[in-house]
Amino acid sequence: MARNTMEAWIPEEWETSKVVQAITQVSAVEALASPITMTSDTKHVPRTAGMGVDVVAKGGAYGEDTSLNDEVLLTARKFGKAARIAEEDIDDSVANIIDSKMIGWGRSYAKMIDNATLAVSAAENGTTIPFTSLYQLLNTTDSGLGYTGGTNITTAASANLPSYTEFSTAIGNVEGGDYFDPGNMYAIAHPAFRKSLRGVLDLQNRPIFLEGLNGTPDTVFGVQVRWSLGARLSATATSAPAGRPIMAFVNPELMLLGRRSGPESVFIDGRDGLSALTDESILKMRARRAWAYGHPNGASILVG
């Protein structure tokens, strides 16, 4: 195949790129979250604890709201990888080795961004733990928002075998909050839940899990399920988490995904520089993302 030398990062076309299609098929967060355009590496996004309402008598004074107004800070972090490709593989291969590498990176990135945003079980450090994950948010007390850490986390007594009561408790934790929106709610879950869900019945012996047919989505308790391979607990962000699976009940409007750049790539021709000695070129892929969940009372998690 012909070789093109690219001297700048080339962004993937969001509507047509196979890399982007792979990412949005695999990543629940990239597909569902509210996108926040970022023109710098940080951005403050307003957050409110709600606003009250009173009955106002004719000619009466309006009461003033005392709800807390604050903001969340989005900080862009870089996810990337480089692949060294031999000149022979580029020139002799029938398959497009560069496209194959890019799509492979996209799928790994998709799993890692879901893990980093939803299921990392430690505090943000900006490197191995790029964000405050949803799990960590729900596990942390925030007195300013009136939330006690762990309130909206339900852990199954038997690993990988959650009961009907545990599923019901988990979704009930978010249903009872001010941010519950029955028309705009998703369950993001690891596929490991599928096996256990098939055997869970409600008190009338009806299945709580309905597998979609002919393009209709899977649902649990009537809530659409989006499956994610990144939805397993891990100590640091990874594309191959191995901890217990989670099911997160979320409102996409509260899922704030900052998009600073990418996915994008640069191809560094091996005929230039030191790589000319080995007939190798380098393909680099990256995306810069930021994350925050708007309010801990607007989500809940079941640990399977």
Rank of each mutant, 00 (worst) to 15 (best):
I10A: 10
R84V: 15
T66A: 13
A83V: 14
A170K: 01
G212N: 09
S228D: 05
P245M: 05
N4L: 12
I208V: 09
N251M: 03
T48G: 15
F209Y: 15
T165S: 15
L161N: 14
F131W: 04
E7N: 13
A116R: 02
T37S: 14
Y109T: 01
I268N: 06
G212V: 08
P245S: 09
Q224M: 11
S158A: 15
A8Q: 14
W105E: 03
N139S: 15
L73K: 11
P46W: 07
A276F: 11
D54T: 12
T37D: 14
A237E: 02
A76D: 05
A110M: 03
A82H: 09
F249C: 03
T148F: 07
E15R: 13
A8H: 12
D279E: 13
V303M: 04
D279C: 09
A189K: 00
S93C: 10
S27A: 10
Y179E: 10
L145S: 12
S196K: 04
D269R: 09
T216C: 02
D41N: 14
F79A: 02
D218I: 03
S121D: 14
W105K: 01
A116L: 05
L197S: 02
G183S: 07
G183E: 09
R289W: 04
H190C: 07
E253Q: 14
P252M: 08
W9E: 08
R107G: 10
G144Y: 08
D91M: 10
E15I: 10
G126P: 05
A231K: 01
Y179G: 06
W227V: 01
I301A: 03
K58T: 10
Y179H: 13
W14A: 14
V20F: 08
E264H: 09
G106M: 04
W227Q: 01
K111I: 14
G258F: 02
L134Q: 01
P217I: 05
P207K: 03
R232S: 13
D65W: 00
G52E: 11
Q224D: 12
N139Q: 12
K78S: 06
A290C: 03
K43I: 05
V94D: 15
P263H: 05
S234V: 06
A61M: 13
A8F: 14
